[in-house]
Amino acid sequence: MGPLLGGALAFRQWIETGHGRVPLRGALVRLWCEDGLLRTPLPLTGAAAFRSGTS
């Protein structure tokens, strides 16, 4: 299983157990940087981040 599919499955399990999304988002970015999938750490955001008035 590659880093994207593995990350998606881990994220789903994490959310289903009732944990918050923010800690796992950071962990996924760090993992993908270490695996060489990302060159720089990019934040994972949801659609709400693109609303007006969001910092």
Rank of each mutant, 00 (worst) to 15 (best):
A47T: 14
R30M: 06
L37H: 04
Q13F: 05
P23E: 04
E34D: 12
G36F: 06
P3M: 06
A27S: 06
R39E: 15
D35E: 15
F50W: 14
L31D: 04
P3W: 12
C33E: 10
L38C: 03
M1N: 05
S52P: 02
A8D: 04
L37E: 04
C33H: 03
R12I: 13
P23M: 04
V29C: 02
L28S: 01
G26H: 11
W32R: 09
P3E: 10
R30N: 08
P41G: 13
G2D: 15
T17P: 00
L37I: 15
L42Y: 05
L44T: 01
R25N: 14
S55T: 10
A47G: 03
H19I: 02
M1T: 09
E16W: 03
R25I: 01
V29H: 00
R25Q: 12
L9A: 07
Q13A: 13
G20F: 08
D35Q: 12
A48T: 07
G7V: 00
L37Y: 10
A48Q: 13
R21L: 12
F11L: 15
A27E: 08
G53Y: 00
H19C: 07
A48L: 11
G18D: 10
F50R: 06
P23Y: 07
T45Y: 08
T54Q: 14
V22A: 14
E34K: 11
P23R: 03
E16M: 03
G26R: 14
A48V: 08
L4W: 02
R39L: 14
G26L: 11
I15M: 11
R25L: 05
R51L: 13
P43L: 04
G6N: 10
G2S: 14
G7C: 02
L42H: 12
M1Q: 10
T17M: 06
L28H: 00
P3L: 07
L38Y: 01
T54A: 11
A8C: 09
L31A: 08
W14M: 01
P3D: 07
G6M: 05
G36W: 04
G6T: 08
W14D: 03
P3R: 11
W32Y: 13
R12N: 07
L4R: 06
C33I: 10
M1V: 09
G6E: 14
T45H: 14
Q13Y: 05
L5V: 06
E34S: 13
S55D: 09
E16V: 02
Q13I: 04
S55K: 09
L4H: 04
G18P: 02
G18F: 07
A8L: 12
G36P: 01
G46N: 10
T17D: 13
A10M: 07
R51V: 02
G6Y: 03
R12K: 13
P3C: 10
L28N: 00
G18T: 09
I15H: 07
L24E: 01
R30F: 06
A49Q: 15
R51D: 09
E16L: 05
D35T: 11
A27C: 03
A8S: 09
A47P: 07
A27Y: 01
L38N: 00
G26M: 09
L44N: 00
L31S: 06
E34Q: 15
L28E: 01
A48H: 10
S55C: 12
